[in-house]
């Protein structure tokens, strides 16, 4: 009796605390997003006195000539292209580093690690991009995101590759597979769990990135969704209802990704982490 009480009590407590930590903030976003501007200014968790879902939605979408729509297109392109390239490049680098040990491996590993350690400096990076003619456009920004994400991706892939038996590669080579075929047909499919992890983690990272788009791709034509948040706030006047509607719209894509890939993320995380 007593033990059952403890068990149920603890379980209930855990559920309750997760509700408080995860659902209450979300409820706050949703309710504020449908309020009128006056009630939203009170900044409290309350039932909306007046539902303005459609009005707020259309206002947010129409702000500054449908900037949010352009921003969503830009963010989608940025995320999809960067993550695709990250996965392919990261897996290739990790495959070579893991399988073909040579004198340069140590140096290459060190360089990958430096990518994680060294903070990127904005102004020199912009100079380099200007020299290369890449500044202020989507291709340049995509390259930036790939560069900043590559180290982490390589590390994850490399750790996971250690768990893939070498015999599989050898069998494929004996069967006559060339290097590309070996990589794309044998190795890449085996990396599925960690690939899902990387896709989710990096997508959320890149989708939510604020500073890189701000500095490396100025101008409205390059705006990403995070930059649209500033349309609704300033020192003297903040429209919380519109701001939260924007946040709600922006939160949806990463949320859907998490819901769809939840199980694979956890599987990929643990399988990459235990063995090294």
């Amino acid at each position: 009796m007593n033990r059952a009480l403890t068990r149920w009590g603890l379980g209930g407590l855990a559920i309750l605390s997760s509700i408080v930590v995860f659902l209450v903030p979300f409820a706050f976003i949703v309710t504020t997003a449908v309020m009128d501007s006056r009630q939203a200014g009170e900044f409290t968790l309350a039932w909306p006195r007046q539902f303005q879902f459609v009005e707020n939605l259309t206002t947010v979408l129409q702000t500054r000539d449908y900037l949010l729509v352009i921003a969503f297109i830009n963010s989608t392109v940025l995320t999809v292209v960067s993550v695709t390239a990250l996965v392919i490049l990261g897996a290739m680098v990790a495959f070579v580093l893991q399988r073909r040990k040579s004198r340069l491996t140590g140096l290459a590993n060190f360089l990958v690690l430096t990518g994680l350690i060294m903070p990127p400096a904005v102004v020199p990076t912009i100079w380099v991009m200007q020299k290369l003619g890449l500044f202020g456009g989507m291709p340049g920004l995509i390259l930036i995101e790939i560069t900043y994400g590559l180290s982490f991706t390589v590390l994850l892939f490399r750790a996971f590759l250690a768990t893939v038996p070498r015999e599989l590669d050898e069998a494929a080579i004996i069967d006559g597979a060339g290097p590309l075929r070996l990589f794309f047909r044998v190795v890449l499919p085996l990396l599925r769990p960690v690939t899902v992890t990387i896709i989710v983690v990096q997508s959320v990272n890149i989708f939510n990135d604020f500073t890189n788009p701000l500095y490396f791709a100025p101008g409205d034509q390059n705006a990403t969704v995070q930059l649209t948040l500033f349309n609704f706030q300033s020192q003297n006047l903040t429209s919380y209802n519109l701001l939260f509607m924007d946040i709600l719209l922006i939160t949806i894509p990463p949320l859907i990704m998490y819901l769809l890939f939840n199980r694979q993320i956890v599987a990929g995380m643990t399988s990459g982490a235990v063995k090294g």
Binding site: D65, Y66, L67, V69, I70, I73, N74, V77, L78, V81, G137, M138, P139, I142, G219, D220, Q221, N222
Partner: peptide
């Protein structure tokens, strides 16, 4: 598409 996406608004 990345190149053309941006020019939608201007």
């Amino acid at each position: 598409t990345a190149c053309s996406a941006g020019s939608l608004g201007s």
